[in-house]
Design a protein around this nucleic acid. Structure first.
Lengths: 338, 338
DNA sequence: CCGCCGAAGTTTTACGTATAACGTCTCCCG
DNA sequence: CGGGAGACGTTATACGTAAAACTTCGGCGG
């Protein structure tokens, strides 16, 4: 470190104010009622301001044995969804004097560095999306309080879970399409092993299976526009009667489906309906605008952080899934009757 | 903290291995050649593994006076661009034993908490996007090594800068459109006071102004699809000859322009050409695919981190703007000759 | 007038680590 | 055979903070 002048410490402030280091700590830590006079306290604060004093966090953390920092583990930040989650979590954290460090699970970042080395910070707790499964294995073994987002409530032993009511969203989508008269459905599924996607498949099968005379074909694709386009194009080109609607596991897949449909010379929603899930900016950028399920990412983050704070306090986090909302736009219509 | 069993310290490891704490530190810190025997070193490592020892980072940071952690300050994470920057920066950081903490400048996160309180971590340096101007004011006053991304090389006193060659990108876009024969251009500009956008405006004016018989109208819009649509629609509905091409400051604005064009019953690129800048996923999701300028976000992040490492080492970061590339897709064509 | 209490501080200690400074013991060379 | 040079450790210390334990002093009730 070429740092010439070292930063002022609480001892420097003490000297400047003519008091002991302990007094500085008391005043700045707001624990001085009945211990330090009003006048002295003001003098200390003035000295601190004067010197531009900032407490050394490493020292404080060492002393207190906690950091008031939590880690938010998310899959590679490829959409704005997790930006929303972060925003919500950070808001609640800030209100409680906590900081949030983001740990996007590495993808080509390097040889699987563990989150702790990477975040360097010592942590009080972790909020992790179930989609960042690879990072989770590295997390196991440490006994930090953990909150899982969108994870199997049964499977995540011990850890509290906070979930979006994806199942309800899928039911709404399926109900919407079935109500319009669609009977041949294509499920464009994310090629990711994660609970949140399993729920989609399960719920869809249940809801559609309950209606006689329906068919449901599932095709898997990586979550990218190009990957989804390829998968959808192949599925739509297959022999036999064509599906009249495509239900996509998320909006990005839906964007790929749009391209597939267009390539085949078909039109949305006239020839085929498409639905997404997320309600990203993408959903209103494409034409026609996408019928999708709106997820409140910020609320998701808020609830996640609240759950973690509860765990840290020894309280039980309050449960209840976060409601989602079907947003009907121009990409769905009754099937054309040939 | 309800933490029942406290984590093992280096002293615990020492006791288990039958050596002193200092020996543990030497071995685990890989400074033991000629100080500790091969056998003892192995014994220490085994004990550490056995106990699941992890060094207390707060203590280490306090001792060393540095954290090997840098802060990456970015504007609200609303696109995948900064996710790429992070990935690149984190890769280089990891190769050098550094960690990167993300600080998305708060937007509704709370009462302007300063980055240091929020990131809690003590920092060795900062990489900041010029777009996160609000957070920067909070950073001033601290003498941390600073690297600015996409910032005025002249204006950012002292701080090293790493820039994309946006000016060249704009020249390429303008050249492309002028080459196709366009003469009436609309510049859909971002309503953000930031150097990177000023460069676009300046360079565009220079390049277009050099060609006789051209007109260039500038309209500002917030960086959102809906905001851009409104602004573009208003501009296109104005009296007088209509522009034949819209040059957008980024891809999101371009998506808004698409919607405006479509609302007016016009077609891209037949009636009007549109260009973007960024090459986000969005660019290939919309129809027709967007002619835009590809920015290598990861390389940007890598170069930023390399520059910061250089500063930390007392070396001079090597300069040179990062090249960008025009990607011609379906949204541009020669103007229709009425 | 004694003893106690509260105000206003100070002294001291511990947090866990990295490393400088300090012992041994053995070997080898002159 | 004296002593210097490794090899192999250990002891001691500092980093900056928070807080428990201690000191001092004036006032006041009994």
């Amino acid at each position: 470190m070429a740092h010439g002048s070292t930063r002022p410490t609480s001892r420097d402030v003490a000297q400047a104010a003519g008091v002991s280091q302990a007094a500085v700590s008391l005043v700045l830590g707001d624990k001085w009622r009945g211990r330090v006079s009003q006048a002295t306290a003001e003098r200390v604060r003035e000295a601190a301001r004067e010197l531009g004093y900032r407490p050394n966090l490493a020292a404080r953390n060492l002393r207190l044995g906690r950091t008031r920092t939590v880690l938010l583990v998310v899959p590679a930040l490829t959409t704005e969804f997790f930006a929303g989650v972060y925003t919500g979590a950070a808001r609640i954290a800030a209100q409680n004097g906590f900081g949030v460090v983001l740990y996007p699970s590495p993808e080509g970042i390097g040889p699987a560095r563990d989150p702790f080395a990477s975040a360097q910070a010592a942590l009080d707790g972790i909020i992790a999306s179930s989609m960042a499964a690879d990072a989770l294995t590295a997390l196991r073994g440490d006994q930090l309080p953990l909150v899982m987002l969108d994870s199997d409530p049964e499977g995540s032993l011990g850890a509290a879970t906070v979930n979006l009511d994806i199942a309800d969203g899928v039911r709404q989508v399926a109900g919407h399409l079935l109500g319009l008269g669609h009977r041949r459905l294509l499920h464009l599924a994310a090629d990711v092993a994660s609970w949140t996607f399993e729920v989609r498949a399960r719920e869809l099968a249940a809801r559609v299976g309950a209606v006689p005379g329906t068919s449901l074909l599932t095709v898997r694709a990586p979550i990218s526009i190009e990957g989804a386009r390829t998968a959808a194009e192949t599925a739509l080109s297959a022999k036999g009667p064509r599906p009249t609607a495509i239900i996509c596991d998320d909006d990005k897949l839906a964007a790929g489906a749009y391209k597939a449909v267009r390539r085949l010379g078909l039109r949305i929603p006239d020839d085929i309906s498409v639905t997404g899930l997320d309600d990203l900016a993408l959903a209103t950028a494409i034409d026609p605008e996408l019928t999708t399920v709106r997820l409140d990412a910020e609320l998701f983050g808020e609830r996640g952080m609240q759950a973690l704070l509860a765990v840290l306090d020894g309280r039980r986090p309050d449960g209840g899934d976060i409601p989602v909302e079907l947003v009907v736009r121009g990409s769905t219509a009754p099937p054309s009757v040939p």
